[in-house]
């Protein structure tokens, strides 16, 4: 008995440090080429449609309570006529040393064996801790139980749930699609192939700026892209070890208007 308890305690300690899975089965990674992204927002709607995100209405939007899991940030430099605009899609960075995971008192958010930062909705008690710890502002809170005007609810994706009041949610890297691929691969006794899993945002992105795959596989597209010299990660100095890799935008320094 004591041995078991000791083992549990050990395991518990093991699993309480970020990066506890020394080796992931897969290491799901998103690469975003900022030189391709044109800020169109197709990914934002695709994510909404795939993941049963509720629309909250104008008033709630004003309070900053929209439930989109991916957003396009736009940064503007300079003054007329030398304006420079930069876009960046930001979704949950699925950090391997995730600040949000440390804070949650009920372990509603934890790291799984695929390197994903996972949110267990029915464990979440809505303390908001994770959202305050997240440096990327990607966690979204259900202030109400939102309704779908009938028959809009016919569209709801049966592969995942809808969320209720008091629950935190965020981008999951479309875990339901990963699950389907894993099941199929298991049935066929093989590994998931490169490109087999496409999250909704990746699938629809018209410019092809988003690429998804397994970083453990050195031959995968994301592994190749991760070696790109333009690579960086968002707020890397915080040591969150994100699973989203950005490729720098190619852009001239100084004013855009080069006379002559």
């Amino acid at each position: 008995m004591e041995g078991i308890l000791k083992r549990i305690a050990e395991k518990f300690r093991d699993y309480r440090v970020p990066g506890y899975y020394k080796k992931f089965d897969y290491r799901w990674t998103m690469v975003v080429d900022l030189d391709m992204c044109n800020g169109c927002g197709a990914c934002v709607v695709a994510c909404r449609a795939e993941n049963n995100s509720a629309t909250v209405g104008k008033e709630e939007c004003r309070k900053g309570r929209a439930l989109n899991w991916i957003r396009i940030e736009r940064y503007v430099e300079g003054e007329y006529p030398d304006i420079k605009v930069k876009f960046i899609p930001i979704m949950c960075q699925n950090c391997s040393s995730a600040p949000c995971e440390i804070g949650c008192p009920v372990y509603a958010t934890y790291h799984n064996q695929d390197g994903l930062n996972v949110q267990v909705y029915n464990r979440c008690v809505g303390t908001f801790t994770c959202a305050t710890y997240c440096p990327y502002d990607v966690r979204r809170f259900n202030w109400f139980t939102y309704k779908w005007d009938k028959p809009l609810d016919e569209q709801l994706n049966p592969d995942l749930t809808v969320r209720e009041m008091g629950v935190m949610e965020k981008c999951t890297f479309c875990i339901q699609r990963i699950r389907v691929a894993k099941d199929r691969a298991k049935d066929e006794k093989r590994e998931i192939k490169d490109g087999e899993v496409k999250p909704a945002c990746v699938q629809t992105c018209p410019t092809g700026a988003l690429v998804f795959g397994d970083l453990n596989d050195p031959e995968s597209s994301v592994s190749r892209m991760a070696r790109n010299p333009r690579r960086y990660r968002l707020l890397e100095e915080l040591n969150t070890d994100p699973s989203v890799i950005y490729l720098k935008r190619v852009m001239a320094e100084g004013p855009s208007e080069r006379e002559g």
């Binding site: 104008k58 900053g64 940030e73 852009m251 001239a252 320094e253």
Partner: peptide, 20 residues
Amino acid sequence: VKMEGSTKELGREIVQTVSP
């Protein structure tokens, strides 16, 4: 109602660039 906060990076180097 607009969803953006600041349109300035305030030195955070969010969208990093390289010159052509």
